[in-house]
């Protein structure tokens, strides 16, 4: 275990996660006004349609794929009778397709952002940084799936990266897993490290919109009322919505 390994697989992830968490808290408390998805559909929508839809549905599946592959222990799959072959089939085909959607959708979003004049002129540095960093992480990740796992690579991230990540997240990193990371193929190492770079910049970009998915809308009344003034405090709890 070299110092570099310790830095890459223990220190840096913790720095990144700390920035991720504190950054979000800080931004949420100081910059409600900037906490948005920054929709640019009003300026251009023909190209956005394909790019945004494909990218987002892709990344949602990719997210759940990561939960399934990394956060849920392999043992759990074994227990409910999902064999390695079944898992790999799913990971390669569904994971691969979702990854492809993200890559293509993201590429369209990128093209739009650098080619459509109105969008170019109205993009901030953070818009580019977020999109490009995301693009790099996704491309490396997709290369791993398509170029390594699917072609029969012997590295199993479910017994290496997975447990390592769970150890990191539960605050008890072990030497064994750090070593396993150190021996992972370069593509995987790159993907993980770059992802932690992305997490560190995340709170300072438009990516914060991910945490604002308005699920509350589903069981809210349609019309929202707010009071200007606290008159008649006694009636507070009364629901002030009509339909």
């Amino acid at each position: 275990m070299t110092n570099l390994d310790i830095f890459l697989w223990i220190i840096f992830p913790y720095i990144s996660l700390t920035i991720f968490i504190l950054g979000h808290i800080y931004r949420y408390n100081t910059d409600q006004f900037g906490w948005t998805a920054k929709s640019s559909q009003f300026l251009e929508q023909k190209r956005l349609r394909f790019g945004s839809t494909v990218f987002h549905w892709g990344i949602i599946f990719v997210f759940f794929g990561h939960v399934g592959g990394l956060l849920i222990p392999k043992l759990w799959f074994d227990t409910i009778g999902i064999t390695d072959d079944m898992y790999h089939f799913g990971a390669i085909w569904f994971g691969g397709l979702a990854g492809l959607a993200v890559v293509i959708g993201g590429f369209f979003l990128f093209l739009r952002r650098v080619a459509v004049k109105r969008i170019v002129k109205n993009s901030s540095v953070s818009d580019y940084v977020a999109l490009i960093m995301l693009g790099i992480v996704v491309l490396v990740g997709f290369t791993n799936t398509a170029g390594y796992t699917a072609t029969g690579g012997s590295f199993d991230y479910r017994v290496t990266i997975g447990p390592w990540l769970r150890e990191i997240l539960t605050l008890r990193p072990s030497e064994g897993m750090v070593l396993a990371m150190a021996q992972a193929p370069i593509g995987f190492k790159l993907h993980v490290s770059l992802a932690f770079v992305l997490f560190a910049i995340w709170p300072f970009t438009r990516l914060v919109h991910v945490f604002s998915l308005p699920l509350k809308y589903l069981n809210r009344n349609y019309v929202v009322y707010r009071n200007i003034k606290p008159y008649h405090k006694t009636k507070v709890a009364e629901k002030k919505e009509i339909n």
Binding site: Q32, F33, W35, T36, A37, K38, S39, Q41, F42, H209, S212, P214, K216, Y217, R220, Y222, V223, V224, Y225, R226, N227, I228, K229, Y231, K240
Partner: peptide, 29 residues
């Protein structure tokens, strides 16, 4: 107001004026 998923738009209880809370708008358009 009814279309806003984040509840940023509201009707004022006292006088019916419809407003957008700029801090709560999340750009869902």
């Amino acid at each position: 107001v009814s279309s806003c998923p984040s509840g940023a738009m509201y009707k004022r209880e006292e006088d019916g004026i419809v407003l957008v809370d700029q801090d709560s708008c999340r750009s869902w358009r």
